[in-house]
Design a protein around this nucleic acid. Structure first.
Lengths: 225, 225
DNA sequence: GATGATCTTGATGGATCCTTAACGCCCAGG
DNA sequence: CCTGGGCGTTAAGGATCCATCAAGATCATC
């Protein structure tokens, strides 16, 4: 069954969507602000997300970016203002489609079907290219600019993968340790230092002056392009 | 590698497309007006064409007709005007798909993939050739360079087939075991070692120093060209 | 039922990787 | 000036994983 997450602060809209979507055999979960919306995406792993841009706590594009950082779940944006700039910002941030309030339920359902259909066949894994190397997440390969493959151990690869999937964003030590080593290792920040150093030796042009694997003192690490 | 021709007179659009497409392993060529666009189709023989309707020198539908005169290369049309009539005209002239600016890159990429997929009835190249042997997936045969068939047992063949179909990509042990032996054998990584060794004896010029059947310690195997 | 090919299973040595601890550096605060 | 915390670096063990070999079990074929 297709899971839909509705994030909107207007109770009447949420109720209308819940009724219509449930009647059409969608599994519906809801949130009423950006923060709990992001949490709901992580928790429920919906197949598609319907997001109101006018939330009380966060800017809509921030929510989109927060979701896009780690999943390609389709996002359909709702907004009352028919402003082209806002539309561009939302789409540039990674939204898949855009519906202006007030909307016809039939149109929304059609776009919902289209979004789910488009997303299902091949959710392309990203390929990240820098000046010095290319990371191919699907092939689990790192190719140095100029030919040679870089061979990474499983742990090195997992760590790099988490950082690359969140590229440009800070990833906390706790999050890295949890995703690579598991929840029991949240405090073993020593592991991070060892493995970040190994990755730097293999990837950075000047390992002692990192350009891609950046330290945020006291916080965590960041993959910067 | 899939070749994409971008015809658009807006430098920012061309740049954005070039960056995104190149990062996803497309080969990109560009043109900034209709006449040079038509010339580029003839010269580069792209696998798919992205065409802006608002070109300075020609009407978009004319460009489409010019291309359709001699090839069925898929055409994805871009336009800033969301007018139903123009959309119909472009599609009637022979365009395959239609995207309204501003567009989401994910959507465009999805439509691009769909267009390429529709255009190529034989999705997989059934023959893979290396310097030392040729694998014919359709005929289920391996021919050594210089004549002579290599005879493989059924299990050896299945294993080779999975690796070759994913050539260049890492295939995890679990995936290999699941596809060759079935879901119940996910942990029998011993089987893999035995059969990879047999394949290496039969295919590799130096079985002890593999060139094609590569081990990724802790993760799986990879067929490298 | 005999034979040969194929598949499973176990054992061994060697290579690779993970963990852990120790040390030095830098910087902020006392 | 000293001290402590966070970070980078290195190296050595122990654990894990891999390649190889060989022998028993299974299967197909006649």
């Amino acid at each position: 069954m297709t899971r839909v997450l509705v994030v909107d602060d207007e109770p009447s809209i949420v109720r209308a969507l819940r009724i219509n979507l449930t009647a059409r055999k969608y599994e519906v979960s809801t949130a009423t602000d950006g923060a709990s919306g992001l949490a709901a995406v992580a928790r429920d792993r919906p197949d598609v997300m319907i997001l109101d841009l006018g939330l009380p706590d966060m800017d809509g594009t921030e929510v989109i970016r927060g979701v896009r950082g780690w999943t390609s779940t389709p996002i359909i944006v709702l907004s009352v203002w028919d402003q082209e700039s806002q539309k561009v910002a939302a789409l540039d941030a990674g939204a898949d489609d855009y519906v202006t309030k007030p909307f016809g339920m039939d149109e929304l359902l059609a776009r919902l079907r289209a979004a789910v259909r488009r997303a299902s066949p091949a959710p392309d894994e990203p390929v990240v290219t820098t000046d010095h190397f290319t990371v191919d997440l699907a092939a689990k390969r790192v190719i140095r600019e100029g030919g040679g493959d870089v061979s990474l151990t499983p742990t090195e690869w997992q760590l790099l993968e988490v950082l690359v999937r969140n590229r440009g964003r800070l990833v906390t030590q706790r999050q890295l340790l949890q995703e690579v080593w598991g929840p029991a290792y949240e405090t073993e920040s020593n592991y991070l230092r060892v493995y970040v150093a190994q990755l730097r030796r293999k990837l950075e042009p000047e390992p002692s002056r990192p350009r891609y694997l950046l330290t945020e003192p006291g916080m965590g690490y960041r993959f910067g392009d």
